[in-house]
Design a binder for these strands. Structure first.
Length: 550
DNA sequence: GTAGGGTTAG
């Protein structure tokens, strides 16, 4: 055997270059490029495409473009791939004008060209342009559809993403694949669209898709985030090929539903199965501890991360620890932890302590922490809202006004509370004080009736949750139209007795809404499931699953 | 040798 037999050839380089991309090693890429030049293969069509692709994927766009420009074949037919990889590179680097220009200039296009550009546009927030292009396609394949489903979801348009998916399978008769399913299930999870999720689950079963790790994980996450923790657990059992993400979403699911025991058990079982926890798995188990007030357990996991698995805690892990101490009322320990941590505490860390200051009404520390917050993000409305909430919570209205004025001066705006409720498979959204819904009148009168009945049974509006310094009655009004209450009222008038109401809120639910929900669950004999930004509240018969610890 | 995917704060 001569050495010639193992010399790389024009057929070897594409594979080598692909591996280089996988490794992400720019220096190695340069070396391989050198080898190609030495062998005089730089003008070979196969090698050239791979080389341009490598540079494009490694975000060395100028090199990719240079090689592309120097390609003698680029204006011939059959050069589609060369154009496609360079278009893809432009999209990846966010140079969309160039991508569009190339797309328009190419001698011929294939489906990949369209899909690449659409993907580039939608990932960079150019949704309208992407939709326009998509709709103009003469021929679409499953990749085109998947790109749209995922892209719409990335831009927060989950309902549109779902519509797109059902249009694909029902109207166009295109068969989904794993990637489509994962994308659409993730949209359901983000928005809490249970009915749609169940329909997709049936589609998966009916079309005999294999429940591999990715599809299983997406399904589990969907059920968990739509409030169906038992279904999540069932799919978890059915998913045979579990990887660390599958376990993590399950642990996370138990955590947000307040089942600490299950979360911890799940974590231990994962380790016994031989799967090493990664930083997300630790984040999940720490969150479980924090939600349940298990301070010592949480700290043990935190230490184990470094000692047993050599995982350096990230800012997120530290934030959970601050939260862990903070919720349990150990504010001094939380502060000490921040002062000793290896990373420079960021906004999130101080924010976690700030929430704890609020919950435990420690105004002195809150003042100190709010300064830290405003140093880090002078325009961040959260700090102002936090601070004015603190003062409001203890009734110091002059300070509330002062903070709010200063907030206005700095041009910071409060995040809008937004809730939605799924009725007959369709999502209805509400903002605080919403008057835009077609059933506004009925919603408000139901709300009033609900509040009055609850009042007769001991509900007292917790006005400390309102920000403004206004008269007591007005405060009740401001509370009375929080978005989750409107969603609740709409849910009650639009569904029959016994139907479970599912509400999703983009912020934390306030104490007053929480209290009213408890009463309503008892008075109307309804199960109410509220998902707020961090966890689930299952209201039944006047009791909440969070046991008021949240 | 080109196009699309699953877990992460409060």
């Amino acid at each position: 055997m001569s050495r010639l037999d193992v010399r790389p050839s024009r057929l070897t380089f594409p594979f080598v270059l692909k591996s280089v991309v996988g490794l992400g090693d720019k220096w190695l890429g340069g070396m391989v490029h050198g080898g190609i030049l030495k062998m005089g293969l730089e003008f070979d069509g196969f090698v050239r495409v791979s080389l341009v692709d490598m540079y494009a994927k490694m975000e060395l766009l100028s090199l990719a473009l240079q090689l592309f420009d120097e390609s003698p074949e680029r204006n011939k037919l059959d050069s589609v791939l060369l154009w496609n990889v360079v278009i893809n590179g432009c999209c990846k680097s966010g140079i969309l004008e160039k991508a569009v220009e190339l797309f328009e200039a190419m001698p011929e296009r294939n489906l990949g060209s369209w899909n690449s550009l659409i993907n580039g546009l939608i990932r960079n927030g150019k949704v309208d342009k992407a939709v326009e292009l998509f709709e103009g396609m003469v021929e679409k394949n499953v990749v085109s559809w998947t790109t749209m489903v995922h892209g719409l979801s990335l831009n927060g348009m989950h309902e549109k993403a779902l519509e797109m998916f059902f249009n694909m399978i029902e109207e166009e008769g295109v068969r989904a694949n794993d990637l489509t399913l994962v994308s659409v299930l993730s949209a359901c999870a983000k928005t809490g669209a249970l009915e749609a999720g169940i329909k997709i689950h049936k589609y998966i079963l009916g079309n005999k898709f294999r429940l591999n790790a990715a599809v299983g994980t997406a399904l589990i996450d969907m059920y968990a985030k739509c409030g169906q923790i038992q279904s999540a657990s069932q799919v978890f059992r059915d998913t045979k090929e579990k990887d660390v993400r599958t376990w993590s979403v399950m642990i996370w699911g138990w955590a947000i539903h307040g089942s600490v025991e299950q979360a911890l058990q799940c974590f231990e079982k994962m380790k016994l199965t031989g799967i090493e926890p990664d930083e997300v798995a630790f984040l999940a188990v720490l969150t479980a501890c924090s939600h349940a007030g298990l301070v010592d357990e949480g700290l043990k996991f935190f230490d184990s991360m470094k000692l047993d698995y050599s995982i350096e805690p990230t800012m997120k892990h530290c934030a959970v620890i601050v939260d862990l101490y903070g919720r349990a009322g150990q504010l001094d320990e939380a502060l000490r932890f921040i002062q000793c941590m290896a990373l420079t505490p960021d906004f999130v860390i101080w924010g976690a302590l700030f929430s704890a200051c609020r919950a435990h009404k420690n105004i002195e520390m809150a003042k100190y922490v709010s300064e830290k917050l405003l140093q880090l993000e002078p325009k961040h409305s959260g700090s102002y809202v936090f601070m004015s909430n603190i003062y409001a919570g203890v009734g110091i209205w002059e300070e509330v006004e002062r903070v709010r004025t200063s907030m206005k001066d700095k041009g910071a705006a409060k995040d809008t509370g937004l809730s939605h409720v799924e009725v007959h498979g369709k999502l209805h959204s509400f903002v605080a004080g919403d008057q835009a819904h077609m059933h506004t009148k009925e919603i408000y009168s139901k709300l009033e009736e609900m509040t009055n009945r609850a009042r007769e049974h001991g509900y007292i509006p917790e006005t400390e949750w309102v920000l403004h310094n206004i008269e007591e009655e007005e405060k009740e009004d401001a509370l009375g139209t929080h978005s989750e209450k409107l969603a609740l009222a709409f849910g009650l008038i639009s569904t029959g007795p016994g139907v479970v109401l599912r509400i999703v809120k983009n912020l934390r639910t306030c104490g007053d809404c929480h209290s009213l929900m408890k009463h309503v669950s008892k008075l109307s004999q309804r199960e109410i499931v509220v998902r707020d930004i961090k966890r689930f509240h299952h209201f039944k018969d006047g009791i909440c699953s969070c046991q008021d610890y949240w």
